[in-house]
Structures are given as structure tokens and as C-alpha cells.
């Protein structure tokens, strides 16, 4: 029975009458029957034809067959043509698929923007976000320059990319500050993961971290439920003076020049966005710095 494909013929019903009766009386017969009966119970995974067909149509539009492996003579002309073709294709693809939207704020301006998923972004002065309108539903990615407060609806992972690191979340409220080499993230609700080149941190509400020049994260504890700048204030905790000056420039649309001042000195405190005189006084008087208006929009700082 081991040769001549006996079982194969049995399943196809090609045994002779005599072979069959002998087999049906053997002990093996029941075991084989059991195997066949049990196999019937197996289910195949589902294959949704119509859904797949719809996907196929989309796939076909962009599908290009891998070139057949043919030996062709090396001819520099081919390279020129190929390079040109690739360039054209890339530009085509870019204009087709990357329909990016950019929202930006000018100096001394804040703006609230609603993303396609109903998450809101509040942009601080001189900041910008960029995202891809067409793919945003599936990939919630926002590229941020500057500073913004995010209130995110729950859903798929939401990623904020900046030049100094990335933040991924599921649905929450947080503030991201990405100014030159300074990178600060504060979490107000939910859970936020922050990552830069050196470090990763998971933030829970009322926690914040900041880093300068891709350093390890320095943790801070928050006392408010919203960033200060959203209530018209900018606040600092042991921030370098340079950062304070830049923020003043952004919020009041002024230029500040310094003469012989150590810009690495640390500043803790806050200033309001509606009164320049008061703000300058609060910031610089305790630091023994004199501020002089050279013109309406230009200020010079000197040591006392």
C-alpha cells in the first residue's frame, strides 16, 4: 500500500471494489477518515474580493513593472535619459502626493488652527506647522517650527516632528517649544513621549522637559493647566538670557541689541504681552541691565 499512490487513488475514488473493501476493514481506515473529517473543519482566512479589487485599482495606477533583466550596452545617453525620467517622475509624484499645508504666524501674532482630525493647534508668535492634508487621516504627522500648544483628539498616533526631536502621543494636550537649539515640551493632559538624539522621556500631566543642543532632558514640574503664552504671558525657568531676549523680540516685534552682556546668564520669571515698558522693567531691572530705546522698535541693553 505504501507505493502505487494508494491513498491518492482512494481519495479520488479510483480504487477497485476489491481494494476498497479490504481497506475499509483495516484499522488505518478510521484514522484516515478522522484526518479527512477534521481537515474539513479548517477555515481559510477571508479574502474580501470587492475590497481588494478596489485597492487593486489604486495600486495599478502607481504600479510600474520592475525592468526585465536584459544586458544592455553601457551608453552614457541612457543615464542622462534615466536621470531625467527619474527627476520628472519624482516631481510628478511630489506634486501628486504631497499636498502639504503650512500655517504660520508672524511676529507678535498667535493663531488657533483646527487640523483635519479636529485637533487644535495654537501657534505662538513666529512659528509654523506643516502637514500633509491628503495623508493626515492615516498618518497624523505635523512638522513644527517655533512654539505651539496642541490639543489632540484621540485616535491613531499623533507625531510632532521638530528639528530638535519628536513627540508622539495618542490624544492629549501639550506644548512644544522648538527655538533654534532649545527644545522644550510640557504635558498638560494624557501621556506624551518625547525623543531627541540623546534621550527619550515619557511625560504625564504637569510634567515638562527641556533640552538645549540635543542634551539629555532636564525635567520640570508645571503649575498651570495651560502654557503661559496662551494667557498672554511668557515665562521662564532658569532660561538663558538669550532665550528671554528672543522671546521679547518675537512678542513685541522689536529688535534688541546687547553691549557687553553675558547672554548665558539665567533668568527666571515672566512677562506679559501687552505692555512693553512693564515687560522690559520686569525682565531687566532685577538683572542690573539698563535698556534704552534707540528708536521706536529698537532697544539697546547695557550693564548698569
Amino acid at each position: 500500500m505504501d507505493n502505487d499512490n494508494f491513498l491518492g487513488r482512494w481519495i479520488a475514488g479510483e480504487l477497485t471494489e476489491e481494494e476498497r473493501t479490504t481497506f475499509e476493514q483495516s484499522a488505518d481506515y478510521l484514522a484516515y477518515k478522522d484526518i479527512l473529517r477534521a481537515t474539513e473543519k479548517f477555515e481559510r482566512p477571508t479574502f474580501d474580493i470587492e475590497k481588494r479589487l478596489a485597492q487593486q485599482r489604486v495600486y495599478n495606477q502607481t504600479y510600474t513593472e520592475a525592468p526585465k533583466q536584459k544586458t544592455i550596452k553601457l551608453n552614457s545617453w541612457y543615464y542622462v535619459a534615466a536621470t531625467a525620467a527619474v527627476l520628472v517622475a519624482l516631481i510628478g509624484i511630489k506634486s501628486l502626493f504631497f499636498t502639504s499645508t503650512t500655517i504660520q504666524t508672524a511676529i507678535a501674532e498667535t493663531k488657533v488652527w483646527t487640523l483635519p482630525d479636529q485637533s487644535t493647534v495654537t501657534l505662538n508668535a513666529d512659528s509654523a506647522i506643516t502637514y500633509d492634508e491628503t495623508t493626515f487621516d492615516t498618518h497624523r504627522i505635523v512638522i513644527l517650527e517655533g512654539e505651539a500648544f496642541f490639543d489632540i483628539t484621540t485616535g491613531s498616533t499623533f507625531t510632532v516632528q521638530t528639528s530638535n526631536g519628536a513627540i508622539t502621543v495618542l490624544g492629549t494636550q501639550f506644548n512644544v517649544q522648538n527655538r533654534e537649539t532649545f527644545f522644550g515640551v510640557n504635558c498638560y493632559e494624557g501621556k506624551v513621549q518625547v525623543q531627541n538624539k540623546k534621550d527619550t522621556a515619557i511625560l504625564t500631566p504637569q510634567m515638562g522637559v527641556h533640552a538645549t543642543n540635543d542634551s539629555a532632558f532636564i525635567p520640570t514640574t508645571l503649575t498651570q493647566t495651560q502654557p503661559d503664552w496662551m494667557q498672554g504671558r511668557s515665562s521662564f525657568q532658569k532660561a538663558p538670557l538669550k532665550q528671554l531676549i528672543q522671546e521679547l523680540e518675537r512678542q513685541y516685534a522689536i529688535t534688541i541689541m546687547t553691549e557687553g552682556i553675558d547672554l548665558t546668564r539665567q533668568f527666571s520669571g515672566s512677562f506679559a504681552h501687552d505692555n512693553l515698558q512693564k515687560a522690559l522693567k520686569i525682565c531687566f531691572e532685577p538683572m542690573q541691565i539698563t535698556y534704552t530705546f534707540v528708536s521706536d522698535k529698537k532697544i539697546v541693553l547695557t550693564n548698569k
Binding site: N5, F6, L7, G8, R9, A12
Partner: peptide, 9 residues
């Protein structure tokens, strides 16, 4: 047929 036979075996 052969493969079927071997599979069952």
C-alpha cells in the same frame, strides 16, 4: 495523486 498519497501518509 502521488503527493496526495504522501501527504496523507
Amino acid at each position: 495523486e502521488k503527493r496526495m498519497h504522501l501527504a496523507l501518509l
